[in-house]
Design a protein around this nucleic acid. Structure first.
Lengths: 142, 142
DNA sequence: GGCGTAACTGCGAGCTGCTCGCAACTCCGA
DNA sequence: TCGGAGTTGCGAGCAGCTCGCAGTTACGCC
């Protein structure tokens, strides 16, 4: 994994490559996303406003959308409640317990077999990363 | 599959058994749920108000919650947008295309192998029915 | 460095999809 | 028929965004 500032620069460079502009707000948002994982928009707003108190929440929402369109980040729904944001193409998937709310990371490859089977039988390509898989953890099953 | 009115009576009888009351509003909502599949709360409100124009939307939301707590119906999230409601324990799962919005029903048993594996390896029991599985259909993959 | 302009931002209103408090009403066992 | 707990309508409120608009800013070009 490369150094944080390097990863921020890669994100912003890709925006630039797409004819978009690099602003201090966007840099701050990219830094937050690189520095922490799986944040809600509200948490990102709070983190960014520590250093840039004038940055509007709507700007954060718009920047997240822009970064997602560029394929640089993605959002995942862990259940009811706000979407959560992370860098794109993480090799993990979320299991969320409906009982206690615990989130467990499992390798995405776990789903390869099922994905292959569904493509074969139904022509449908599953994108597991957009919604978490909910259920009950070992502890809550008792 | 039993006759519609019979199914409505079974739903309402279970409510009664739990010390709750059967009202014309609840009967109307149960009839809509038995008669159509996979409706949003707003669609249920509209359908019920055809015959009972004074029935409030908040009553529909509360009744859906009550029926779900009784294990008689369940809601599923097909993506962004409102939850959708159906009778509980349908043997189907939803595949939703992110491209065109198409919803395809597949047997729940398709997921049995993965479920068994995740229980074994992580002690986690997946409940696939609460969130649809999103991805891209054969048509949109081209 | 200065300029022009398209991209971006802050502000605040608005929207969807519920959720809740409260007073009025109604179902149903006795 | 009656009492009271369960249910309802109404409307305000809330989370989590989304959008329109006017003002500001980045950056390619000179």
């Amino acid at each position: 994994m490369s150094r944080p500032t390097e990863r921020v620069d890669v994100l912003l460079a890709e925006l630039r490559r797409r004819g978009q502009r690099i602003t201090t707000g966007r840099r701050a948002i990219a830094e937050v996303l690189v520095g922490a994982d799986n944040l809600s928009a509200e948490e990102i707003v709070a983190a960014v406003q520590d250093d840039h108190p004038d940055l509007a929440a709507s700007t954060v929402y718009r920047t997240l959308e822009t970064l997602e369109e560029a394929g640089l980040i993605e959002h995942v729904h862990l259940g009811h409640g706000p979407a959560r944001w992370q860098l794109a193409n993480k090799p993990f998937h979320h299991l969320v317990c409906e009982g206690c709310g615990m989130v467990q990371l499992v390798p995405r490859s776990l789903f390869d077999e099922l994905r292959a089977r569904v493509v074969l039988e139904f022509g449908f390509e599953i994108a597991f990363q957009h919604f978490a898989t909910v259920g009950r953890c070992a502890h809550c099953r008792d």
